[in-house]
Amino acid sequence: MVRVTTRINGDEVTFVCEPDETLLDVLRDRLNLTGAKEGCGTGDCGACSVTLDGRVVCSCLVLGAEAEGRQVGTVEGIARNGKLHPLQEKFLEFAALQCGVCTPGFLVAAKALLERNPDPTEAEIRFGLAGNLCRCTGYDKIVRAVQAAAAAMRKG
């Protein structure tokens, strides 16, 4: 077992895990943060997206042990003090989710995208989010929600 101290959504957390256990399993099974989903376990679907030191990664492709001393951000940390982030609001307003299982990953990835590129083109959104699979929507409403959130965030 490995003992790891890290920060998750800003709060210090210490956990123990198996050396081969993924960060996704740690979040879900040990810390009860089940917002990140396992859709594939091989980095192909993005449902487990979290940020690691500000970069979006698939938490199924990160070992729990690697989180030592790092900053982890999950979907549970996007709303602040009970207030939804513009992306969350626009996802609801634009009906950008049907089943909702890919939504946490999309929100984490889209937030990271907009932090680096506040005014992305449609193509930049589509390519930037190509690692997040959605099987319900055909992406149309997701892309529109991200565009609308970007516009709202630029206005402040």
């Binding site: 990664v57 492709l61 990160v62 995208l113 930037g128 190509a130 690692g131 997040n132």
Partner: peptide, 9 residues
């Protein structure tokens, strides 16, 4: 190589 997520690693 891979997605934005994979690019991060």
């Amino acid at each position: 190589i891979g997605s934005t997520q994979v690019q991060g690693r």
